[in-house]
Structures are given as C-alpha cells and as structure tokens.
C-alpha cells in the first residue's frame, strides 16, 4: 500500500490566527499603544494584563478594528485588517467577537435575551425563520441557560446569567476569536468559577482563541496559557 501523498501545508496554515505587529494607537499627543506585538493561536488563551490606563482597551479596540490603529498590522486568519475597507471588513467581523465586563450594560435592556442572541444573525442577514430559533435555543442551552431565560429581559437575570447570555450572543456568529474584556471581574467568586468553566469548555469544543483582558492575578494564572503585560502603552513581559 502506497503512502498517500500529503500536500505540503500552505503557508497560511502555519500563520497564527491573530498576528499583531508594532501596533500604535494615539489620541492626539498621547500614545496609548506603543509598538505592541503579539500572536495568538487557535485554541489558545492569551491574557493581556496591566493596570487601568495601560492601553489594554485601546489595544483591543484596534485588534477588533473598532478603532483603526495609527500604525502597525493586525493579521487575522492571514488577512491584514488595517488595509481593508469597512466594506471588506464586514464579512470578517463576525469571526472576532467581544464579550464585555458589565453583563447588564452589554445587553440592550429592551430586548428579550432570545432576541439579543438572535440579533447578530439578523444584522448579518443570516437569520432564517426555519433554523434561527433552534440555533438560539441550542446556544442558550450550551451556555447553561434555561429555555425560560430566553423570554426574560436582562434585568430579570443575575449577573452570571447575563454574562452567559452575552457569551451566547458572541457565539451565534460562529467566531474563531473571542476578545474577553474583564468578563468575570464583576461576578461573585462561585459565579465567576462557573463562567470560567463554561469558557474553558467552549474553547475545547470549538477551538476558540481567547484574548483575555484581566487584571486579577489569580484568575489570569488559572485561565491563561500565556500572559503578556502592558505598562504605559508598552509590553513589559511575555
């Protein structure tokens, strides 16, 4: 029996999922992010640590292209995002999703949980009445919410339940990268442990990469594969 010929991997397959090079973000005379470089592989958790005002959030905004960086490259799935137009970015945006710190603030108070989770699909024009509701129900179940929670409004859920809903909303677009911006900082210890376990399970199952913004050393130690630290806009440790 002859050995099947395995084609050599394309260069792109060797590339990290996210490759940030010499990122610079300025606000007027202030340089918030000063030549920051890092990479993130599929299935990996990279913690970005540092005190308030060190440039973590600016870095994240630039990675997500919510704010275009002033210099540097953001390669995601092999494509250089900073060179793309807004229109070219649009199909890529669902593949990198943020989850925010304040579970109540990140969901509209006027939308039922079910609708909040479905909304990205509607916005992306991918909603279909046949499969959509089942997909939402499946996601709510996957993040540990009851079907009844889907009918409720954010203020009717606990902080931990809201954060789970926010994760379901991020997952509905089938992302490859989740940017977790202090996702458990506002939660009680036991609730926090449950959300971290959920994120770990999702990562194993879906091969998600996490860029994990967190400034709690115990949580970072437990949850991250690698840590980079920022001070005054620069990386200080890798």
């Amino acid at each position: 029996m002859s050995t099947p010929v395995i084609p050599p991997p394309r260069r792109a397959a060797d590339d990290p999922l996210l490759d940030v090079r010499d990122l610079v973000v300025r606000y007027g005379p202030v340089t918030a992010v000063d030549h920051v470089s890092f990479t993130l592989e599929a299935g990996e958790t990279l913690a970005l640590d540092g005190p308030s005002g060190c440039g973590k959030s600016s870095t994240v905004s630039a990675v997500l292209q919510l704010r275009r960086p002033d210099a540097g490259e953001v390669r995601f799935e092999g494509r250089e995002l900073t060179a793309l137009t807004e229109r070219e970015l649009r199909p890529l945006r669902p593949r990198m999703q943020p989850v925010f710190q304040d579970p109540y603030g990140s969901l509209s108070p006027r939308h039922r949980i079910r609708d909040a989770v479905a909304e990205p699909l509607r916005v992306q024009g991918r909603w279909d009445d046949a499969g959509g509701p089942a997909r939402v129900a499946e996601l709510l179940d996957r993040v540990g919410l009851e079907p009844a929670h889907g009918d409720r409004f954010p203020h009717e859920l606990s902080g931990g339940q809201c954060q789970r809903a926010g994760i379901a909303r991020a997952l509905v677009s089938e992302p490859r990268l989740l940017v977790l911006d202090e996702p458990v900082s506002a939660l009680d210890p036991s609730v926090r442990a449950g959300v971290l376990n959920l994120l770990a399970g999702l990562q194993e199952e879906l091969g998600l990469a996490y860029l994990f913004i967190c400034h709690d050393p115990a949580v970072v130690r437990h949850f991250a594969d690698r840590t980079i630290e920022m001070r005054d806009g620069r990386l200080v440790a890798g």
């Binding site: 958790t45 036991s190 442990a193 376990n197 770990a200 115990a218 949580v219 437990h222 991250a224 594969d225």
Partner: peptide, 16 residues
C-alpha cells in the same frame, strides 16, 4: 471556587 494559587498555565482546562 477561588482559582487555586499554585497552579497555572493550563488555560483553564482544570475546572474550578
């Protein structure tokens, strides 16, 4: 439910 002090670098694969 507190993250243990001594472990780390396992990407949360050990459940809390």
């Amino acid at each position: 439910s507190l993250p243990p002090v001594e472990t780390g670098g396992h990407g949360g694969r050990r459940r809390l």
